[in-house]
Design a protein around this nucleic acid. Sequence first.
DNA 1: CTGTATCCGGCTAGATACTG
DNA 2: CAGTATCTAGCCGGATACAG
Lengths: 110, 110
Amino acid sequence: MNEEPRYKRKEDCPLTYAFALIGGKWRLPIIWALWKNEKLRYNELKRSVDGITNMVLSHTLKEMESYGLVVRKQYMEIPPRVEYSLTEAGKDLVPSLESLAKWGKAMQNK
Amino acid sequence: MNEEPRYKRKEDCPLTYAFALIGGKWRLPIIWALWKNEKLRYNELKRSVDGITNMVLSHTLKEMESYGLVVRKQYMEIPPRVEYSLTEAGKDLVPSLESLAKWGKAMQNK
DNA sequence: CTGTATCCGGCTAGATACTG
DNA sequence: CAGTATCTAGCCGGATACAG
């Protein structure tokens, strides 16, 4: 996958910035899975996010980690174990998302 | 511009659906402009949304109208006058967006 | 188990010109 | 004033294979 040219860090408008952080095809499903499960291993997460490939999952997680949304914790074991979870900032996001989801649901019923 | 293959109407997840409706490069700026101004003529809106072209603006507005976010009111005058405003659903969205913007602002300051 | 490398296609949106 | 037509480019994300 390419290097990210998309996300100008610290964009002027906070709302646009927020969307830059959580937009894209897989970010929301990942956040949702980690919200419902607290912490997940790589393959658990992959199974929770239906249809995502290794390529895209690992790349997306790296981005989200760099944005401060996700924590990656690696255990030095064999076989390797890596656990992902939401940062506090990631959790802070959830109420806003629930609010948006509520609106989305109302829109679906029209 | 192409016909839209992107937005599966009534997608399962309400949150994903919400993002389908308001995602994309220009939807948020347009909503914002119409929120701050109540109603705007086509060219006023264009001036409010910095950098957008006619092609993209008119196409985006058509989509947003079909999604029930925006109202287009045309007056039969010469020269032609067309005013755009938010629907009730569009206005209902604003509190969620403000909540998200607040989160985005906190993220910018880190 | 947890990823990375390479290659590639389709979609989003832009440039430019033109119209009722 | 308020758009539309046509053509194009570049990013986003996918397929597939491979690695530590």
